[in-house]
Amino acid sequence: MNTLLYTFHFYLFGLISIASAVAFVTRKSPVAAALWLVNTMFCLSALYVMLDAQFIGAVQVLVYAGAIMVVFLFVVMLLNLGQASDVTDMRGLGGRLTAGLVGLAMLAELFALSRIKFPRLTGAMGDHANVVNPISAPLFHEYLLPFEVTSVVLLVAVVGAVVLAKRGPGAS
């Protein structure tokens, strides 16, 4: 593998994802924001693949960008929130400045925490021929119980969503 090309693409996708994320948080229209977020997720998917997690990259596109974000857009449109509202949904200047300060401080702390020398990546991980095998083995052996429990969580969430979104008997 061409290391330079690999590095170039890695930085490319990383920077695009960050730029998309910045665009996402600064859009006033929820629809535009959601689309920028989808873009971020696509870039992240590319990064996953480059980090030898091809299966997760695929799932990222299918589940996150494809399913979850579509549901978001669906709700936005269902509630007719497509246009920016009359009153800004952005906080005042003080709030934004403070939030920026908090963000900077958090970033600084994260960097300070992650100042560990990581080894350069050598070689590839696992068997490229089979990208599902390395993840399915622990998922169905070591993590079988959590796996089953998450299915229960999903069921509960579905029931809860139905109950919450259903029009109550008293509602108009």
Partner: peptide, 12 residues
Amino acid sequence: AIGALAVLGAFT
């Protein structure tokens, strides 16, 4: 957020 900041600060 501030709590998370504080926890991270404590680690840092």
